[in-house]
Design a protein around this nucleic acid. Structure first.
Lengths: 353, 353
DNA sequence: CTTATTTTCGTTTGCGCACACGGAACTGTC
DNA sequence: GACAGTTCCGTGTGCGCAAACGAAAATAAG
């Protein structure tokens, strides 16, 4: 691994000019058979690595990345995500990467489609998106594919993707983890509930994965004898939600509750607080401000951190690396499933990034 | 926040030449009061950010960072740390950063001192170290200070440091977390043990912090009635260790054990496995191979991940940023206290970095 | 054998910055 | 007023690469 071989060096060895070497490196033709082979051989032998600094400096391009994400004003989870995008922007603007956000309405499929349309009118060099709406996302991905626009996906996968990379969690494992945290040293059999609390529309595929993991975990526990119940709760109609929840809580055999949506956490927390929490373990998702409050006062026992901020940050970085340095991203980048308790919470809030 | 302001632009605005602007940016004097102020003002106002690519390309320097760390062959924890260093090297070599490791014997103070001596003979531009040996480290830091060599410290702080940055954990909080994980829903009072298992020498200051946090946690729990015991165990004399441990385990009121050293984890695990684990919760540190084994088979309930690999990676990155880009590091960079269970383990092993 | 066309290649410029060099303008000295 | 010493500042070159430009060589066309 010799160091510091420049194009110039290659040129000298091959007895040609730098221009010629450059042409074969970017194989844009106009090079004689002979020279081509000769240069290729030397390129191989020396293991030439271009100086990426000089490369991106020299090719004075500027790349545009579009971020098609939910409106951050609608949801703190997506607000954090937007922060991640901004953070990545700070890091990459100096390299000539420009990020344009396109926000769609989290509760409106049509808005996703129309923003996607918007986006494609001035096609960016790459795209980041959270495919909340399955069908609409598929359509969008298809056109991206046709137009050769690389894209990465956060939050939840879409199988038929064609994406450069998926960045997020193993949702099945996530459900299992939730189950484990509820089960922990509750040796007696009992009932465990998994609740999907959502607004108008929701991403059922996404939540199903968690539920599957949750159920698998309890099925695997020796002895069995666990009762697992699952509920879909629409929180826009609060009274019925409250009733449903009260029924649940009055079941004496109930040992634990997992709420799969980040917003659901504090909605359920409120009700639990009202009713009193008697020995039921409660686990939920994400470090939203309200959730932290309920973690601190003991209503929530554990939070699983999905770290939407970092997801977005990494996603943009992958795209930037792809565009600038031609480094390809891992097809799936799974985040650690971070367990947050009262005692390690601070250590997650302080960290620089 | 307009982007793409070059030195040339600044120069035009200030009606001077690029050379002058350059001089104030690197404040190496030879600039009249007037011009200086004028340029500084514009620098502020425009929020000028130098193009790091061009900068490192132009100043064709190469920096040397020395890593004074324990011999990775002696301990898996430090092996992981060395991997972090290597990873950082991969990332930074292209920017002209060169990393030279100096390994000292983990069980031999003199070796630390002599390697430190070695290192200083061809003084590097910056230093990373793990100050395992208090007094020796202090001496070393003093000379670094005298020679103006910036250094960062991982693993454990040294108060009187003078280091650019400390990278590691809040050890008090770490002890508290260990306590919480043991205590979790063990509502009845009982006994909780904190064990320091070490080799010949050990870093008592380091471990004391954890113990303090551990005790604080239990003191704060309402009801109280917890008995906390602490033991220093030298594992080089195995029979006596085993006896001590057996005594402990036969205490019927024992509810949980926290082992504070990464190696101690599997040593204690073996003995617990032999004796049988009856309801006692067991929490330990770090993702060493053997520890993972005992986590998977249920001897260990939780591991707290100190992530020595990432500590080293971040440490080198901070130094590189400091040298190349003059970004100063945070004086202390505390890592999240990661809780590892059977169910989220995989998600920590897979991640790219 | 010209003239036109294509293939092949060397040269040059610019990217944004660091830094060396040397030149003005100013100050002081005798 | 001639000379040396300061202080301040502009210009030029190089970092390694990309890419435009245009020249030479090879080939085709007339």
């Amino acid at each position: 691994m010799n160091k510091k071989i420049r194009i110039k060096d290659i040129a000298e060895m091959a007895q040609v000019s730098v221009g010629t070497v450059d042409r074969v490196i970017h194989n844009r033709g106009e090079v004689a058979e002979d020279s081509y082979k000769k240069i290729m051989a030397i390129l191989e032998k020396t293991g030439y690595k271009p100086n990426l600094l000089a490369r991106t400096l020299g090719s004075n391009k500027t790349f545009r990345i579009a971020a098609l994400m939910p409106n951050p004003a609608q949801d703190e989870y997506w607000e954090q995500s937007a922060e991640g995008v901004k953070q990545a922007e700070d890091e990459w603007t100096q390299y000539g990467v420009e990020i344009r956000p396109y926000h769609f309405d989290l509760y409106n499929k049509a808005s996703f489609a129309s923003q996607a349309q918007n986006l494609l009118e001035t096609p960016p060099d790459a795209v980041l998106t959270a495919p909340i709406f399955h069908q609409e996302a598929l359509n969008f991905f298809r056109t991206c594919g046709e137009q050769n626009i690389p894209f990465v996906v956060v939050n939840n996968t879409i199988e038929e993707g064609g994406s450069l990379s998926f960045i997020g969690h193993d949702l099945n494992q996530s459900g299992r983890l939730g189950a484990e945290l509820l089960h922990l040293s509750n040796t007696q059999p009992g009932t465990y509930a998994i609740l999907h609390v959502y607004d108008d529309v929701h991403n059922s595929l996404h939540l199903n994965e968690k539920e599957k993991g949750f159920k698998e975990y309890f099925a695997e526990q020796n002895g069995g004898g666990f009762k697992v119940i699952s509920r879909d709760l629409n929180h826009t109609h609060e009274p019925s939600l409250e009733k449903e929840l009260n029924d649940l809580l009055s079941d004496a055999s109930l040992r634990g509750i997992l709420v799969t949506t980040s917003k659901g956490a504090f909605i359920v927390s409120r009700l639990i607080e009202k009713k009193g929490k008697n020995g039921v373990r409660f686990v939920a998702y994400d470090l939203l401000k309200e959730n932290l409050h309920y973690l601190e006062n003991g209503i929530i026992d554990f939070l699983i951190n999905q770290n939407s901020k970092r997801q977005a940050f990494i996603a943009i970085s992958q795209l930037a690396n792809h565009l600038l340095f031609k480094k390809d991203a891992l097809p799936t980048y799974l985040f650690p499933l971070e367990i947050i308790s009262r005692q390690n919470l601070k250590s997650y809030l302080h960290t620089g990034r």
